[in-house]
Design a protein around this nucleic acid. Sequence first.
DNA 1: GTCTATAAAGGGATAGAC
DNA 2: GTCTATCCCTTTATAGAC
Lengths: 210, 210
Amino acid sequence: MTETRTQRLPAAERRELMLDAASIVFGERGYAGTTTDAVAAAAGVSQAYIVRTFGSKEALFAETASRAVSRIKAVFRQAAASESAAEESVEERLGRAYVDLVADRGILLTVMHLLTLGHHDKFGPLAREGFLSIYRVLRDEVGLTPQEAETFLAKGMLINTMLGLRLPDIAATQPDAGELLTCVLEGAADEVVTLSTKHQPLGQAVRHSD
Amino acid sequence: MTETRTQRLPAAERRELMLDAASIVFGERGYAGTTTDAVAAAAGVSQAYIVRTFGSKEALFAETASRAVSRIKAVFRQAAASESAAEESVEERLGRAYVDLVADRGILLTVMHLLTLGHHDKFGPLAREGFLSIYRVLRDEVGLTPQEAETFLAKGMLINTMLGLRLPDIAATQPDAGELLTCVLEGAADEVVTLSTKHQPLGQAVRHSD
DNA sequence: GTCTATAAAGGGATAGAC
DNA sequence: GTCTATCCCTTTATAGAC
C-alpha cells in the first residue's frame, strides 16, 4: 500500500481536496446517504478532520453543492461568452460545455441530489435558488428563450439521470439501454446545435463571480 | 385528538395503508433520508410493526418503489389502450395520465428517488430495470418512437423535479419560477398532443400484470 | 494541520406481552 | 394483529494529544 497519508498541507489546498472528495461521494449517495466517514476516506483524512474543517455535515454539503452549482453556471457562461475568441463556433462551445461538466463526475450528480431536497428546511431554499439561478444564466446570459432553456434543462436532467443510473455500464448487454442512450446523446448533440443557431446575440455576457 | 389508532385490520388492508404512507415519505425524503419511524407515524402504526410486516427497511423500499413503477406503467398503458372506448381522444387520455400520476404525490417522487440509486448494490439493478421497463411501455405499448419517448421522459423528469423542488409554492413571489413552470406545463400539454398525433397505431396493447 | 479516542444521539431490528 | 421495551450498531460531533 502506497500510503500518501498524513502529509501536512496548506489549509486552502487540503480544503479543495476535501471538497473534491465530497463532491464525488455526495454525487453517488446523496446527502442523507453519505457519511462524513466516507468523505474522509475518499479525501484521505480522518473523519474528525472533515467535521472540524467544515463545522458540520450540513455545512459541508451546503458548500459542496453551492460550488457545484457555481461551476455549472461558470461552464455555461464560458460556453456562451467566448463566442468571439478563436474560430470555434458557439455550437462547439456548448457541446464542450456539457462534456466538461460530465468529466467531473461529481458536479452534475451532486446538483441532481440537491434538486431532490426541496422538502428540506435548510437545503430546500438552496435547491430552489440554485435551480432558478441556472435557468437565469441560460436565459439571460446564454440567451436562450424560456422554451429553449426548458428543453435544454429537461434533456440535461434525463442525461444526468441515465448517467447516475449507470446505464452505459449495461448498454452492452441490454439493447434497450443502448438504444435510449444513443438516442438521447445524439438528440443532445442536435439540441445544442439547434439551440445555438437560434438564440439571440448576447454581446459580452457579464461574468458575475457569485 | 381523534385517535383512530390501534384498530385491528385485515393484514392485506393494513399493508396497503403502510405502503401508501411509505410512498409519501420515501417520495419526500428518499431512501436514505427516510426512517422507518417516520413511515410508521404516517401510517399510524408502530415502528416495530412496519419492520415486522416488511422484514426490513430495504424490503419496504423495494416493494414501495416497485409498486410505484408498476403504477406508472399501468397509467401509461391505460392511456394508450383505451383508445377505442368512449369519444375520448388519445390526447385527452395521455393528458389525464400525467394528472392521475401527479395526483398521488408519492408515486412519481418515489420513482425519482429510485432513479438516484444507480450506485446501490441492491436498488441499482432495480432502478435500471424500472427505468427501462417504463421506456419499453412507452415505446412498445403506447407506440412512441424512441425519440418521442425520450422527449416525453425528459420533460416528465423536469416536471417531477420542479414539483419535488416545490417551485409552485414560490411561483407567486419568484417571477422566474412562475415563468419556467407555466412554460414547462404548457409545453407538456403541447407535448402530449404532439406525440399522440404522431404515434403509430397500437391495436390492443397487451396488459401484463407485472 | 491532523490524528485518536470517545461521548452522545439516532435508528433498524428483535423479543415478548396483549 | 399490533404494541412497548430494548438492544446494538452506526454516525455526528467534541476533546485533546502530537
